[in-house]
Design a binder for these strands. Structure first.
Lengths: 253, 253
DNA sequence: CGATAATTTGATCCAGTTCAAGCGACGTGG
DNA sequence: CCACGTCGCTTGAACTGGATCAAATTATCG
């Protein structure tokens, strides 16, 4: 499971903090499970490994990676505290998971996890709902990848990664490398770099550290990322189309 | 719900045939539900409509569409017999669904559907499994969109649409328009056209009708689409990487 | 049979890739 | 404490796949 949607307390790259258990009901399943720590850059599991475990990210960040036959690398998601890793109905994991930062995970035997899910209707609901959310997120990602310019991609990525607010501004932790971002957004490292530089140049954001940027003009960034789910625009647009086609519509059933 | 994965009996654009109930357990839920027919090009529901119903495609094909604020259109999936349409945990549908061909759908009140799912563990399993499959499919699609060339995109699209076999060859029904394909694969109608023409020119496929193509060289098409899940390549590749990093791996927990 | 929409084909153009070269931070060993 | 290599990132310059613009051609349907 991946494609984080929830906005949770960001993880500090160096210190270890507790995950916000209260927000994710599913976390309660993991509360007493063994804790595993992985150093930055290490592997949690490999694509193709027998899928015997499910994890919950407690703190830190992991990336889920898929490889194409020609060596091209795709990051299917960055997972943060509260996200589940490895939930699937396949025998094998369909992606490799690596620690981006030092990370703490709670491990759950997949078998037990499935039993618990079957036993607890409330948990089931939560998991189901989470799957649906991720489904939508994956589609959003597909839209992003297929139809958006470099500027739009980066802008919406930054907005999704934005978590902490200081005063007027948003601080964005980017513990992953530029290559990771590129592989996530379907662009090259050079374009990622050029685009961030451009944004910084036009005063939209400031780069303190390469891994910590501050959004100075949230509005501008939003208007660049524009259209993501721009409902105030879409609603009237749909209404118009609906009008146009309502007569053509034949509901035979 | 979308991104069809299962390979099912293809739908003929003009005749009405029964869906293969035996293959999808979930279909049994819909067996006695009211049947609705929609003419080609008509709307089943709109993005933003209150999500009160769930459908199962019985025969024909529908497309799930999302609109971006600037009018760009994305097709998130083509749905065929056995596929469920509109399953979600949102109040509103997140995409518009249109009939590509004349289509028959079984309608289910969402409320009842959810009750049934809650009541029948077997159905729940099936639905869950289906969601997971679609999750993976959506990710595959994201990979396709972000990292593949026009040739690769079209080749793998054709392979996924291929269903019926006649002799050595595969017949592919493409009831949707070129624009639909373009919007699904994240390319322009011109590129879709040029690429199909090129494939036809190099003897990989033959175009009978614009909407019915025959794959003449499955192998060539596969090697163009290559890499999709090319495990015979990936497995050794992963093994090598694993070797390289196994010593660096620190499992602290 | 003519009108209209869908598709193909042709000719440019450009965003983003590719190739190539600096740059700064960090760690290591002398 | 500093030279030196490495790594991740930025910057520059040329190149290209696919987009865009513009017809021509071919269904499709009254």
């Amino acid at each position: 499971m991946n494609m984080p949607r929830r906005l949770v307390q960001p993880t500090n790259q160096t210190s270890i903090e507790d995950a916000p258990f209260s927000t994710t009901g599913l976390s309660s399943l993991f509360r007493h499970q063994p804790l595993e720590r992985f150093a930055a850059g290490t592997i949690v599991f490999w694509e193709g490994d027998k899928a015997t475990k499910v994890f919950e990210v407690v703190c830190g960040m992991v990336r889920a990676i898929r490889l194409l036959s020609d060596g091209r690398r795709i990051i299917v998601g960055f997972l943060r505290p509260g996200d589940l890793v490895g939930v699937s109905f396949k025998d094998q994991y369909v992606y490799t998971v690596e620690a981006v930062t030092k990370v703490e995970l709670r491990r759950f035997s997949r078998h037990l996890f499935e039993l618990e899910i079957a036993r607890q209707p409330a948990m089931r609901e939560l998991l189901f709902s989470k799957l649906c959310d991720e489904m939508t997120a994956a589609q959003d990602q597909a839209v992003l990848l297929s139809r958006r310019s470099a500027d739009e991609k980066l802008a919406s990525f930054l907005l999704r990664m934005a978590t902490r607010r200081i005063g007027q501004h948003m601080v964005v932790d980017l513990p992953m490398t530029r290559q990771d971002i590129a592989d996530y957004l379907g662009m090259t490292i050079e374009t990622v770099s050029r685009t961030t530089t451009k944004f910084a140049g036009s005063g939209i954001l400031a780069m303190t550290d390469r891994h910590i940027i501050t959004i100075l003009s949230m509005d501008e960034l939003r208007s660049i990322a524009e259209g993501e789910e721009c409902n105030h625009w879409i609603a009237p647009c749909l209404a118009k189309m609906r009008q146009q086609t309502s007569d053509a519509r034949q509901l035979i059933g």
